[in-house]
């Protein structure tokens, strides 16, 4: 038993080392703040909310229920679910991008707060768990479109705020940056 457990632990450690050392980094952004790189990490999927909002319209829902034949309505619902699933996946990408941006800010800051970093880690863990649960709910057909709409608006709000802040830092305040490093 000891032999088996120790071998498993050894293999797990070796795989983890290989992944940590040679796996492609999750944060592809170059570690500097310039406006074009910031654009790469800012969320984009939540900007398509108006189109999705149309898709989620309750009027359409009622219309299809009343007027369309049953098989057509089923197909319509399945298609709507597929698009929502893709959209939810896009929202996750947006959240991940925001996470990367948060990491970028931390990496480039001479002082960071321990409590703040732990909170971001905890929030990210919560988000990813909730996302999985939502995706499951969507697959089971019990996710309300209104809920998704609220989520989208929130990410969009965060994006616009960050965009403004980061653009200010990157483009208009170069004199406030410094090139020395501590250590």
């Amino acid at each position: 038993m000891t032999l088996f457990v120790a071998t498993l632990v050894l293999l797990a450690i070796l795989l983890a080392l290989l992944w940590l050392l040679f796996g492609s980094p999750t944060n592809e952004a170059v570690l500097s703040l310039d406006a074009r790189q910031i654009e790469k990490v800012l969320p984009v999927n939540c900007r398509h909310f108006p189109q999705i909002s149309q898709l989620l319209s309750q009027d359409d829902n009622q219309f299809m229920r009343k007027r369309a034949p049953h098989d057509m309505e089923s197909r319509w619902r399945a298609e709507r679910r597929r698009i929502l699933k893709q959209y939810l996946s896009g929202l996750r990408q947006d959240f991940t991008s925001l996470e990367r941006l948060a990491h970028l800010i931390a990496v480039l800051s001479p002082e960071i707060a321990k409590r703040q970093e732990w909170e971001w880690l905890w929030l990210a863990a919560q988000f990813h768990f909730s996302y999985r649960m939502l995706a499951l709910k969507l697959a089971l057909g019990s996710l309300s479109p209104e809920g998704l709409a609220g989520l989208t608006q929130m990410i969009a709000g965060l994006t616009s705020e960050l965009e403004t802040r980061m653009a200010l830092i990157a483009e208009h305040s170069p004199s406030r940056m410094r090139t020395d490093v501590g250590g």
Partner: peptide
């Protein structure tokens, strides 16, 4: 690396 000014993290975080 070019680091941010000391107060930026406190403002953004």
């Amino acid at each position: 690396p070019v680091l941010l000014a000391p107060g930026e993290y406190g403002r953004l975080a």
